[in-house]
Design a protein around this nucleic acid. Structure first.
Length: 489
RNA sequence: GGCCCCAUCGUCUAAUGGUUAGGACACGAGCUUUUCAAGCUUGUAACCCGGGUUCGACUCCCGGUGGGGUCACCA
């Protein structure tokens, strides 16, 4: 039997970080087993319809490298669908759900219900006051066939409800083992809503079956709904897929990760300059760890190591400090050229146009201490315009004003006298300056500290050689000059 | 509240009856160094509690406690 997994989000306008992990695990399993990963859009709630949400979802999935093998994709900004088992957008499959719901009615496993939401609400309130379980009282179950068809033909608003069978229902979760629940605990679920749309419970079962899904990997919040789905599979006479319920991703206070307590949208993280591979790596390790002593995994390594049975059962707090570290690791692994490409969109968005050569040099010099790509926006400023700083900063801790002045002038003189060719390579600049220091019996710190401050205006920065290289001869001399002036006055 | 799930350093986790309970992030110290970052070395820090089972429990069982999820014509 071939493995088919699916990611089935509702289009909310952004991709939740938890959904990213769910999606990832589905992709990993499918790829590892040579199966198919498909995407299905669960847009059966018309009230939550968000224009453009599907497009945005597809583009995000593409950006993080999790585009589906089958289902909707973006072509030239337009949503198209590929695959033989479509459509893959539930709102385009409405007649299908009705048909299956009616077949359940025909076999006596479901029934029409005409109760208004007002009645349902007040029923619920009464039950709450009486401290009873809030369940539908099955009033419409006892309607006669005649009355039902009469009210149906009068176009009275109605839903189709599942008639929950007696007994108990179990399923074998790939992560948690067997889970059993008494059917009496479960309400008579609405299958078809009065607006003609199916509920999640009906749609997910019908579609997973029709789309030949072998593994349903989804969040833990679905555990309590799974028995409903298992019952539907049984009623339809279908084999249920393997279920795997992932532990929740948590806020620092251990509640389910939510918007209120920080960013949860993958798009937000991307916009802040997190790399897709870092996000994937990080999220993959929330609840799963293939080896004891490795933190950095490429998606291929993850694919190879993925194992449903190794997934944790308990929730994992989303710790951005570790994400930052990981992102820095991935940035360090980029070549300066790659980094330029990644950083450009951030500069464009900030409305900053910078000469390509300068960007490349900044990237190459600042890379070791960047944790997010967006930092480039502020970084660039310091190279274009010297930040204002206290001239006292120019004086090294083991030296005085005169030392600083001497050093600055000395460096300026030396650089002016050098073959401009050294500016092609940081190494040459460094070698040349160190030679100068050595030849004149000077101390590194005494020369290099004032130089750093003169070039960066900061007390911590890349090395003065890198600074000079990035700035270029002309700007370097200009900054040395202005430092000399600042300190002499 | 009913039902369901879960429980190792602050956080992410390893360990599948016998380890000085390991690694990573964060934090502290040191080395390196012209600063910062990186890197290397290193320190602080955990088995929720109580009963069993066993020669022996972080590991298995039961109970408690704690946390979470879910109880819609939302997914």
């Amino acid at each position: 039997m071939s493995i088919r997994t699916r990611f089935a989000p509702s289009p909310t306008g952004y991709l939740h970080i938890g959904s990213l992990r769910t999606c990832l695990y589905n992709v990993l399993l499918a790829r590892q087993q040579g199966g198919t990963f498909l995407l299905r859009i669960e847009d059966t709630d018309r009230e939550r319809y968000v224009p453009g949400a599907v497009e945005s979802l597809l583009s995000t999935l593409f950006r993080v490298g999790l585009a589906p093998d089958e289902g909707p994709k973006l072509e030239g900004g337009v949503v198209v669908q590929s695959g033989d088992l479509g459509p893959y957008i539930q709102s385009e499959r409405l007649p299908l759900y009705l048909e299956y719901a009616e077949s359940l009615v025909a076999q006596g496993s479901a029934y029409y219900c005409f109760c208004s939401s007002e009645r349902l609400d007040s029923l619920r309130k009464q039950q709450e006051i009486a401290k009873l379980p809030t369940k539908y009282d099955r009033r419409c179950l006892s309607l006669s066939k005649e009355e039902t068809s009469l009210r149906l033909s009068a176009n009275e608003p109605h839903v189709i409800r599942l008639r929950m069978p007696d007994g108990e229902t179990s399923f074998d979760d790939a992560i948690r083992g067997q889970i059993t629940i008494q059917n009496a605990e479960i309400d008579d679920q609405v299958l078809m809503k009065s607006d003609g749309f199916p509920t999640y419970h009906l749609a997910v079962v019908v579609d997973d079956h029709l789309m030949k899904i072998s593994h349903v990997i989804r969040g833990e919040e679905w555990i309590s709904s799974t028995p409903k789905h298992v019952i539907l599979y049984r009623l339809f006479g279908w084999d249920a897929p393997v279920f795997a319920h992932l532990p929740l991703i948590l806020n620092p206070d251990k509640s389910k990760l939510s918007k209120r307590q920080g960013d949860v949208a993958v798009e937000d993280f991307l916009d802040k300059g997190y790399l897709p591979e870092a996000l994937i790596n990080f999220v993959a390790l929330l609840g799963f760890n293939p080896k004891a002593d490795q933190e950095l995994y490429s998606i291929n390594e993850l694919t190879e190591a993925f194992d449903l049975s190794k997934i944790n059962k308990s929730g994992a707090v989303f710790d951005t400090a570790k994400l930052d570290w990981m992102n820095g690791q991935y940035i360090m692994k980029k070549t300066p050229e790659e980094l330029v490409g990644l950083v450009m969109p951030f500069l464009e968005r900030a409305g900053k146009s910078v000469e390509p050569m300068l960007i490349k040099r900044i990237c190459s010099v600042e890379r070791p201490r960047m944790t997010r790509l967006s930092e480039i926006v502020d970084l660039v400023d310091g190279y274009r315009v010297l930040p204002t700083f206290d001239p006292q900063l120019l004086i090294w801790k083991k030296a005085d004003v005169n030392d600083a002045l001497r050093s600055l002038k000395g460096v300026r003189g030396h650089l002016t006298s050098m073959d401009p060719k050294i500016w092609e390579d940081v190494g040459l600049i460094e070698a040349s300056l160190k030679e100068y220091i050595e030849a004149n019996g000077l101390q590194n710190g005494n020369v290099l500290w004032p130089m750093r401050v003169a070039l960066s205006g900061r007390s911590s920065s890349p090395s003065p050689f890198e600074l000079a290289w990035a700035l270029g001869l002309e700007e370097t001399l200009r900054r040395l000059e202005s430092a000399v002036n600042a300190i002499s006055s």
